[in-house]
């Protein structure tokens, strides 16, 4: 296999920057835009995706040789949906407040392109160790971008960070930031900034 030559650590680090799911591949933008109104929501969503992605990659990479090509997508979806349900029910049982604020976006991880894309593109073709590292890197990259985006939106839009008041009391919140237009604007700026940074770094 060609991939076998890549050093192991790079399977992890590529998700952070070079192949970052949001900034580079612009995958999974639906939860990215929808739940990043507060930092706590952003990080909860990121962790739910991390759990789902790592567990699905682990299982699928384990049984990758047994899955016939014709039913691979169906198999991936059943496995992904199982772990999404595990994540969703667990959050609902132990953190009802988080579950309420994330709303339908946890169950919607099933159709999150990042999760399915990593199975199709990576876990079904690579050994367990690499698949888990890849899944970890991707979901950590996803979580970091979500956290940055959510922090910017929460600080500007509500004057708080993780619910703590950090702006002076006289600060007027920029409501647009917690509304959908603010999500699109900030994600656009973030991608523009990362492209600019990337161009600088490659020089």
């Amino acid at each position: 296999m060609v991939k076998a030559k890549t050093p192991l650590y790079r399977e992890f680090t590529k998700g952070l920057w070079r192949e970052n799911p949001i900034l580079r591949m612009v995958l999974g933008t639906c939860p990215t835009l929808a739940v990043t109104t507060t930092a706590i929501n952003g990080i909860s969503m990121g962790l739910a995706v991390l759990f789902t992605l790592v567990m699905s990659s682990l299982i699928i990479s384990l049984v990758r040789k047994q899955i016939p090509n014709e039913v691979r997508i169906a198999t991936f979806i059943v496995i992904i949906a199982t772990f999404v349900t595990v994540a969703d029910r667990t959050i609902a049982a132990f953190w009802p407040a988080v579950s309420k604020s994330l709303g339908p976006f946890v169950p919607l991880i099933v159709v999150n392109c990042i999760v399915l894309a990593r199975q199709e593109a990576f876990a079904s073709k690579n050994p367990v160790g690499r698949s888990v590292l890849d899944a970890l890197g991707m979901s950590v990259g996803f979580t970091l971008v979500l956290l940055i985006l959510a922090s910017i939106r929460e600080i500007i839009g509500s004057g708080t960070w993780f619910g703590m008041q950090i702006m002076p009391p006289t600060y007027t919140s920029w409501m647009v930031m917690v509304l959908p237009p603010g999500a699109f604007l900030m994600l656009g700026m973030l991608i523009a900034f990362s492209n600019w940074l990337n161009a600088k770094l490659e020089k």
Partner: peptide, 13 residues
């Protein structure tokens, strides 16, 4: 394969 996947999923859930 699909039956086993579904069984696994059902058991976990």
């Amino acid at each position: 394969v699909l039956t086993f996947t579904a069984l696994f999923s059902g058991a976990v859930l």
